[in-house]
Simulated assay, not measured.
Amino acid sequence: MRSLKKKRRIQVIVMAAVALVLATGLIGYAMRDGINLFRAPTQILAEPPAETEVFRIGGLVVEGSLERGRGETIRFEVTDGGATIPVVFNGVLPDLFDENQGMIGTGRYVDGVFVASDVLAKHDETYMPKEVIDALKEQGVYQEPAGS
C-alpha cells in the first residue's frame, strides 16, 4: 500500500515538472519576437547585429539628410554624435518627425543600412525617449532643453 502512494506521488511530481518546463518553453517562444533591444548608432557600428535580428535604433535625425523618394520610401540618417547610420523607411512618417529631432525606429540592419519597419517621433517640442537621451549623453552631445 505504501509503495503505491509513493509511486503516485512521484508521478504527480514528475508531471508537474514536465508541465512547468513546457509552460516556460512556450512563454519563451511566444516572447522571442516581442523583445526589441535598443542600440545607438555607435553601438551598431562597434558590434553590427545579425541581419535577421530586429532591434530599435535611436538618435537625432541628421539635418539635411531627409530624402523623400518616389512613393512612400524615405531615406534619412540618424546620429548619436559619435556615429551616423543611414535609415530607409517605407511608409508614412509621423507628423512630428523632423530633422534635428529625436526618433526611435524598429527594424533590421542590412548591408550597412537600417531598414525600419516602424518609426516613432517625439510627441512635443521637449520630449525625447530616455534611451536616446542616454545615448546622446554618453557621446557628450545632449543639451538640456531650455526651461528644464
Rank of each mutant, 00 (worst) to 15 (best):
R75D: 05
F76R: 09
F76Y: 13
E77P: 10
E77S: 04
E77T: 07
V78I: 15
V78W: 12
V78T: 13
V78D: 06
T79H: 05
T79I: 09
D80P: 02
D80Q: 01
D80W: 06
G81V: 11
G81W: 09
A83Y: 03
T84I: 05
T84D: 06
T84R: 05
I85K: 12
P86S: 13
P86I: 10
P86K: 15
V87M: 04
V87T: 06
V88F: 08
V88I: 09
F89H: 07
F89N: 00
F89E: 00
N90E: 11
N90A: 14
N90F: 13
N90V: 13
N90L: 12
G91V: 11
V92M: 01
V92S: 01
V92T: 09
L93C: 08
L93A: 10
P94N: 10
P94E: 03
P94T: 08
P94S: 00
D95M: 10
D95Q: 12
L96T: 10
L96H: 05
L96S: 14
L96D: 07
F97E: 04
F97S: 00
F97Q: 01
D98C: 12
E99W: 03
E99V: 14
E99D: 06
N100C: 09
Q101A: 13
Q101Y: 11
G102Y: 14
G102V: 11
M103P: 11
I104Q: 07
I104R: 05
G105D: 04
G105Y: 00
G105I: 06
T106S: 12
T106H: 03
G107M: 01
G107I: 00
G107V: 02
G107P: 00
Y109K: 03
Y109P: 08
Y109H: 05
Y109I: 00
V110T: 04
D111Y: 07
D111I: 09
D111Q: 06
D111E: 12
G112C: 13
G112N: 11
V113T: 11
V113Y: 10
F114P: 03
F114I: 10
S117L: 05
D118K: 14
V119W: 06
V119A: 05
V119T: 08
L120A: 11
L120E: 04
A121W: 05
A121S: 07
A121P: 02
A121Q: 03
K122W: 06
K122R: 15
K122A: 13
K122M: 13
K122N: 15
H123M: 09
H123E: 03
H123T: 08
D124I: 07
D124M: 06
D124N: 12
E125S: 07
E125Y: 10
E125M: 12
T126A: 15
T126H: 12
T126W: 15
Y127W: 09
Y127C: 04
